[in-house]
Amino acid sequence: MVEVNLWSGLRKFTDGAEVVEVEGRTVGQLLDGLVAIHPGLAPVIESGISVAVDGEVITGGRNTPVEPDSEVFLMQQIKGG
């Protein structure tokens, strides 16, 4: 299981939880797992988010591997100038 840290605005979709334990070995599996547990997160994830894995902000890579002890954060999507 990997601990996924959510931003606090998402708590309303997760019964108040800010950290959700999800099964998965890639970013994509984690996101799918999150939606399976808390379907309310689906529109948020579909509308575009960034994921930080061990301090690395990943914009697109659903296939990025995740270790059980990885630190995973969902973040607002970041655009640049």
């Binding site: 840290n5 931003w7 930080a52 894995v53 061990d54 301090g55 690395e56 902000v57 630190e71 954060f73 969902l74 973040m75 607002q76």
Partner: peptide
Amino acid sequence: RASYGPKFK
């Protein structure tokens, strides 16, 4: 720990 969540490298 960054203000937006993850730890800085």
